[in-house]
Design a protein around this nucleic acid. Sequence first.
DNA 1: CGCCCGCTTGACCCATGTCAACGTCGGTGG
DNA 2: CCACCGACGTTGACATGGGTCAAGCGGGCG
Lengths: 252, 252
Amino acid sequence: MPQHLIRKLEQFTRLSSEDKWALEDAASRKARLVDPHQDIISEGDNPQHVNLILEGWACRYKHLEDGRRQIISFFLPGDLCDPHVFVLREMDHSIGTLTPVRLAEISGDTILNLTDHHPRITKALWWEMLVSAAIQREWTVNIGQRMGVERLGHILCELFIRLRGVGLADGDSCLLPITQTDLGDATGLSNVHVNRVLQELRGAGLIVLRGKRLTIPDLEALQRVSLFNVNYLHLDREGRHFDTIGSDQVQA
Amino acid sequence: MPQHLIRKLEQFTRLSSEDKWALEDAASRKARLVDPHQDIISEGDNPQHVNLILEGWACRYKHLEDGRRQIISFFLPGDLCDPHVFVLREMDHSIGTLTPVRLAEISGDTILNLTDHHPRITKALWWEMLVSAAIQREWTVNIGQRMGVERLGHILCELFIRLRGVGLADGDSCLLPITQTDLGDATGLSNVHVNRVLQELRGAGLIVLRGKRLTIPDLEALQRVSLFNVNYLHLDREGRHFDTIGSDQVQA
DNA sequence: CGCCCGCTTGACCCATGTCAACGTCGGTGG
DNA sequence: CCACCGACGTTGACATGGGTCAAGCGGGCG
């Protein structure tokens, strides 16, 4: 079931078959289907378990009193919503779906069990948590400093590369199943301006966006225009240099 | 030495004398003085230890290729710079001082030792890490959605409350030892506009800012204007309801 | 004493927001 | 099967928050 999660973690470290089996077991205990535009967990709630997105897109978001909404991060298939929120008693933001979502609810005990017995999973989950934090920081930079074109270009690069990392890209294209208003809420731009900027990116041949399919004919070019530096995604797998010898025994 | 850290953690949980002693020991192994506007660790470096700010202000920041700078977060006395970055091999951003800084370098081993033997410290460090993440998210909201006045008001509220939490507020005022340009780099506004917005806040009697001293005569009023909701700082100490009976034995 | 950094102010401009109308498409019910 | 509807995308006109540039000012420090 959790191919996307496994694929994501394997960008960082190799996992043994037992590791993978344990992840599959953990992810198959309790499934849940959520309709689009529903909260998975709401601000003020007390989180009871970790949610693993199996299918569909979700997001963290926050509403201001006057209705403005900021999308704080996107959750794609393979993403975990806060492996460790249990320490805090109350959600300070909400997590909601953007599309229909299939997710696995993983209990705190299951997580503890996983990490107790699988050091490589532990380390991989640390990596995934630290990368999430790095993405959050990059969003601060993105929204704080980049102009509209760069800002949208940047987020499209990020989403494409993340999707590719979990096996959801098809060559130079991927699905982008969200609205322009969603993109605006994520970038701090109005939906109208998002539309204009997308036209501009299209006009420059940097993206093709038809229906829900995004194509990036020249990813490097889009990265250049968007001042996108991939290093914050930390895709430099540890022990990558061992890959050629095909060992499954790399030290963690 | 690390009174500020201890004070901060005690906002979340009670610490025993042994806990505190262990923290003091860890923080007194290796000290370092850093001049203002110097990097503590630079993008691309390989982090070797955790830095605990003892005195002065620092920040996380990132430069874009064309020179724009975004301050991603502030480090105040008592703040830890990334307790767990060791998992990643390379810094994707820099940490630099804003003022003269005195810090303690804490080795990974020392941290492990602390957490192995002091469950309450472990939990408190988790809390501090999750709160840092919550602050980062709130900055995304701040920069993405709030107007200049709200945005600056919000960050001033946050800084004041964080400083008060570590014992660095004096009634309704605190030191703000950074420039307006720094504030601009943190909020995604130009220094000129920061200046104008500060005038506006001053004009409305919401802040008094003279030299490096910030006074907030009516914190609630400033919070209201800034759409500031304190919940993201998670100051709801666990077991707070035990405080009245004065126990030092609260279960962790 | 003089210099430099940071603060302040004014003039002007542009990126982006707001408002409003219209188009398009897919779904749904009569 | 068609009519309607709602959600989303698109476009134009206009407003404005905030950026940029440039000059002046003031105080701390060498």
